[in-house]
Design a protein around this nucleic acid. Sequence first.
DNA 1: CTGAAAGCGCTTACAG
DNA 2: CTGAAAGCGCTTACAG
Lengths: 353, 353
Amino acid sequence: MAESKKTRRSSGRKATVIDVAKVAGVSKSTVSLVLRGNAGVKAETIEKVNQAIRELGYIYNRDAAGLRSRESNLVAIVANDLANPYLAQVIIALEGQLERLGFMPIVVNINESVTRQTDMVASLKEHNVAGYFITPAPDTDANWLTELANSQHPVVCLMRDVEGALVPTVMPDNRLGMYLSTRYLIGLGHERIAFIGGIASISDYQERKEGFLQAMNEAGLVVKPSDIEPSSTKRQGGKIALNRVLDRAPEITAIVCFTDVVAYGAYTALSERGLTPGKDIAVVGFDDLEDSRLMSPALTTVRVSAEDIGQMACERLQQWRENLTVPESALVGVELVVRSSCCSVGKKARGLA
Amino acid sequence: MAESKKTRRSSGRKATVIDVAKVAGVSKSTVSLVLRGNAGVKAETIEKVNQAIRELGYIYNRDAAGLRSRESNLVAIVANDLANPYLAQVIIALEGQLERLGFMPIVVNINESVTRQTDMVASLKEHNVAGYFITPAPDTDANWLTELANSQHPVVCLMRDVEGALVPTVMPDNRLGMYLSTRYLIGLGHERIAFIGGIASISDYQERKEGFLQAMNEAGLVVKPSDIEPSSTKRQGGKIALNRVLDRAPEITAIVCFTDVVAYGAYTALSERGLTPGKDIAVVGFDDLEDSRLMSPALTTVRVSAEDIGQMACERLQQWRENLTVPESALVGVELVVRSSCCSVGKKARGLA
DNA sequence: CTGAAAGCGCTTACAG
DNA sequence: CTGAAAGCGCTTACAG
């Protein structure tokens, strides 16, 4: 039995729909209906077909199916940086959603390079993917993105907005998140607060900075331009930025970090300066990575649910496919998670002591 | 001009090879030869064809091409855990290599689940990918893997070995790496050394443990079973494992960690215990992640070049495709990177003091 | 619910 | 180097 199966399988070419039809004793069309899960085929027939498929080791040929039907089950997740742990979480959330909808998610990494982004997307077009999720590379051309959406399939931007592009974006409420964390620090009595990390050419940086500035302005606190220090979003960037800012102004008592990873870098730099976060200086992050509650002290940060981002992004893809109408952008809610990395200061601290 | 282009593009169906042939004034066959980069077409003709392609906004249909030629430019990277930063580095290295070879790398995340692995690979088969790189999920069936390699396209395992599977594996010399780091600790005078982190059902865990035990045995040091504490490979796992091991035996003076991430968790736990790595206790990791030199103290660890893994894995894929012969497995070299997380102890420390 | 026929857009011999 | 023809393995109307 096992022997005969093996023989049949390895004998000659791969099985096709025709072979399956023969073995099942039905027509090609019927096999196709079963393969596509079409309603209205007798249960008994379905069973016969599936039996034949197993027997022959038949493998569905999606190249042929896609050529004829012009449809594809592939959805591309075009990721700007696979080494970014928050993005990894978003990808995982997206994958879960997409599979439930019957899509095959494939991720393509562009490493923050517009050139790679252009090349990879061109290849994906040739493969006729059903839709795109994309965290656009810095300096992505708005027209390029709009054309992708027009001429091809649904496109949803994640995490970053490309100004002028007619494409829905799903991203955290960056402004609100930073506003909340900054207000929290102000409430603890901090008056000289620095903002470190992030690359100025990306939309989320601008939004987070605005949230920070808004909170400061509302409290009547001035922000010196030199207290804002952009940097790479890697750990190393946080370390460098923190040192720059504290070298210039040791009187700073609180640090707002562009992301948790930047905050981790700040932790390192502080420790090398003999300063303890949560005691000598306050630090807040953004993202609430899994690791952040394991830092010591545990990092106070802004939580953005990767699950929510994945879900809202998928909803938009579906809406686009079904109604053929371009969905609205969406802001995902944020939440301040208070842990142990912030101390009180000044009158506030004395008052509490 | 811009106007006429637009009109042409949006008028009706997508351009095909036939349209390109008409505009270029050549035959379908010639267009195909140009598309496939076939040698032996006049430069002038190539230019005419490319001009027509641009003019029409022609998009190559890989479903049709794949159906006819049975070839594909897709190579799948089946990743067990996208949240693992070391794996992210390996993926990035692999992508670089694959693109130079003209492949389109797509990554598929299986989240350490055999079920997802089976499902995703089944889908990839339907898409007729040209080859597979795979970091097998725990409890992967050796026969399943062998069959994948037999019946389909080249398969190269990364990082983990599946015992009994007839598939080449490219992974670090785990045994040597741990042997080196343990010897180093022994050289610093440590006698009671714990090994923490890692999941026992995966090959790299066994190999790293063996390297550790070998060094201990050679030095005539006994290892209590309770000084070996497996755990998840996440940061949280390292934290828990460290606490378990030190709760049982506070006299332990050095910790060998399964990975750098586990070591990060150990750092957290130590700090909460009021212990400083590199002063009160020695810690070594494995992987040499980018972050490890930024920890404070900077982590002593075993470096494995992700670039080398990517390169050797690609070589094997190519060899398989070209010679139709299954390549040998390969061990990638390792290197001990001494930084500041290890202290001397006992006679050794006193001698130096 | 089933069958025979056409066709998706390429590539592949093969003849010129 | 080019052209006419066949065919890859499906899905899609359409007739029964």
